[in-house]
Design a protein around this nucleic acid. Structure first.
Lengths: 84, 84, 84, 84
DNA sequence: ACAGAAATAAAAATGC
DNA sequence: GCATTTTTATTTCTGT
């Protein structure tokens, strides 16, 4: 019987995962709509994507508070000014 | 002034997109949680992923794929053991 | 002065790494060419990729994987008309 | 007989691809050696990775000559100074 | 429709 | 050994 219980557990987990996947897909569609709308209003979607990528970059990669990084960068003569 | 209007439009569109992205990220995290839970209960997450992928595919598409795979494998003299 | 030495050491190491990365990129491009050629000759690149992946796997590892997959699929009442 | 010819073609293509893969693996190992050496000399490999990532970023993403990007960025009040 | 680029998913590796 | 991070692979999308 524990087999059957495990099977049910497994099924529920997988179905939960798949439901979440559906939601994600819906949101991705919404994002497409946003870009379509932008395009319809005369904006260049490719450039918008670049802008978004840069803004993401800023918050994730470039805003690091890493003293050692600064040290190494200095050793290499790299400038680390990211005033995005 | 139309410049300013366009700028605002652009900003709003981008911020909408980014908000949607946040949502997507949240859901992806939930999916991770599901898999963690599965793991905690003793299931093999790698296999679960395979199951999920398989459920996504329509079986007839799957079979076509397999047929070509078999052809190529035969051409290479590969043994294709699917003793399930 | 030891600072300067360390800086030079660091620079050399990083540049070595980056050179290797360039080489890797070149080879990846060659691999793309191989697949393009295969496509041009009428082969299905997707299937070729599957074949390559399969050749990478030791067959015994593969079989173990398949066994667990079958167990989970059975638990879900899935038909397993095999794929890779 | 054309079947046999195709099989040989296929085999050769795949073997070429696999040989290239071996080369790539060798280079990846060399890169590991570089990092191991750096570590042995007292450098922090994690920070080195960050430095490398930034240098790559510079050459790929940030060096774009895109007037429209500047326009959009200006509209959003973004600064685009990347003096890495 | 095809090539190229971007995003996502899967796998590998490193550090704790 | 686990868990996080990194790298690779596959899929998806966009522009030509």
């Amino acid at each position: 019987m524990s087999e059957a219980v495990a099977a049910d557990e497994l099924r529920l987990l997988i179905e939960r995962w798949e439901r979440l996947d559906e939601e994600k897909k819906g949101i991705a569609d919404d994002q497409k709509d946003v870009l379509s709308e932008a395009k319809a209003r005369g904006f260049c979607t490719k450039t918008i994507r670049k802008i978004i990528a840069r803004r993401k970059l800023e918050s994730h990669v470039l805003q690091e508070d890493d003293a050692l990084l600064a040290t190494y960068a200095a050793a290499l003569g790299m400038q680390l000014n990211f005033d995005l």
